[in-house]
Simulated scan of single mutants.
Amino acid sequence: MNAALFPDLVVNGERVPHALVAAETQNQEAPKGKPGIAWRKAVNAVAIRTLLLQEARTRGVEVDRQEVGPGLFETDEEALIRGLLDQVIDAAQPCETDIRAEWEKDPTRFRTPPLWEVSHILCGCDPRDEDARAKALARATGILALAQGDPKGFPALAQRESDCGSKSSGGALGQLGPNDTVPEFEAALRDISEGEMSAEPVLTRHGYHIIRMDAVALGQVLPFEAVRAKIAIAMEKAAWAAESRQFIMELVKASDIEGADLSMV
């Protein structure tokens, strides 16, 4: 990324070093081969952070670093921004009527965790190795075609082809619940119906998987009393986020910013 290709970021007369924007780009998603998108996102993020820090200092917010994990504390800037938002945001707690109304929109959203009974065939590879990944995908695609052509032969196919220790049991992994497997695998499970296979090989840190959903046990719908506190917390967080966004929009409108486009904030 050639920083010279992009204009300087100036926030209320404060010129922000390109190095700060460059460091922020690693936190921004963008299509492969289009670093300019990541840079523009980073510019906007840094501009907002700069605005918040300026406002915190104007209001005399004191740095009070809090522990955010075992032995891990906020930076001075994080503490200033949190202190500012604590000072200006006062999200009202939802009332009982609103909490119940949110639950009544769709009580089936609130369930005990599901259970999935799953079998799979693994074509192992290191996803960071492009050649190995391509070979594993080609192999997995061929195995998937065989499995789709003979669903009853899945266990025998797993015993013959899988790179996972579960091959000895025909690929059966038994019952899995949320967080029992890697995120990519779990995300795929949520999209496969009982008795079906993944439409295409699923890539995880272990390689490509052909997944068969042997059975699904959806969680039981929970009564209002069991989820009331969870709903209240989610609604309060949503209200806090909305007020924070409004506060930032007001700062943006009242500021002089060059080199960033915050019109969509």
Score class of each variant (00 low, 15 high):
L5H: 07
F6S: 05
F6H: 14
D8V: 04
L9H: 04
V10M: 09
V10N: 03
E14F: 08
V16F: 03
P17T: 13
P17A: 14
H18F: 09
T25G: 08
Q26D: 03
N27I: 03
E29D: 10
A30P: 12
P31R: 14
K32N: 13
K34S: 10
A38L: 04
A42Q: 11
A42E: 14
N44C: 07
A47V: 09
R49D: 14
T50M: 04
T50V: 15
T50G: 03
Q54I: 11
R59Q: 15
G60Q: 06
E62K: 15
E62W: 10
V63E: 07
V63I: 15
Q66D: 09
Q66K: 14
E67V: 10
L72A: 07
E77I: 01
E77V: 02
E77C: 00
L84F: 01
L85R: 13
Q93K: 12
E96R: 10
I99K: 01
A101K: 13
R109K: 11
R109T: 04
L115D: 14
L115S: 15
E117T: 12
H120W: 10
L122E: 00
C125G: 11
C125I: 04
P127K: 01
D129M: 12
A132S: 07
A132L: 06
T141R: 02
A145E: 15
L146S: 12
A147P: 02
D150K: 13
D150E: 14
D150M: 06
P151D: 11
P151L: 07
F154R: 02
L157S: 11
Q159W: 00
R160D: 04
D163H: 00
G165K: 02
L173G: 09
D180P: 00
P183K: 09
E184Y: 08
E186F: 15
A187T: 09
L189R: 03
R190Q: 11
D191Y: 05
I210A: 01
R212Y: 06
L218D: 13
L218C: 06
Q220E: 14
V221I: 15
F224K: 07
F224P: 08
E225F: 14
V227K: 01
R228Y: 10
A232T: 05
M235W: 05
S244A: 09
F247I: 02
I248F: 10
V252H: 06
I257N: 00
G259Y: 06
L262I: 11
S263T: 14
